[in-house]
């Protein structure tokens, strides 16, 4: 189970969403043995949480690149596009 959650943590949102859809389809298909369907359900729950976390974590953060003396980006500062900070 631990191994599964590790795998899920590394998934992109899209992969996790697709995996969740797959889980739902399998469960709805009703061809999965009951024991296995419980494991599948738990996996689906982990996938859903992972996706939800990605959605919840979404927040606007607007930054502007600041270049160092060599012209390479050295960091960022917040950007206010209305003032062009």
């Amino acid at each position: 189970m631990a191994e599964t959650s590790d795998t899920i943590a590394g998934m992109t949102f899209e992969d996790a969403l697709r995996a969740l859809e797959d889980v739902v389809r399998k469960l709805e298909g009703g061809e999965v043995p009951l024991d296995e369907s419980i494991t599948l359900y738990e996996r689906g729950e982990a996938l859903r949480k992972h996706c939800q976390a990605r959605l919840d974590a979404a927040q606007a953060r607007i930054e502007k690149i600041v270049a160092g003396p060599d012209g390479q980006p050295s960091g960022t500062v917040p950007l206010d596009p209305d003032r062009g900070a």
């Binding site: 927040q59 606007a60 953060r61 502007k64 690149i65 209305d82 062009g84």
Partner: peptide
Amino acid sequence: SPTGAVIRDILHRLADRFPSHVLVWP
């Protein structure tokens, strides 16, 4: 350009759809 309508339009639409981390290279 860090100023003007273009970056504002992009940021507004991103905020509407999916607030994201945006890095602007002026």
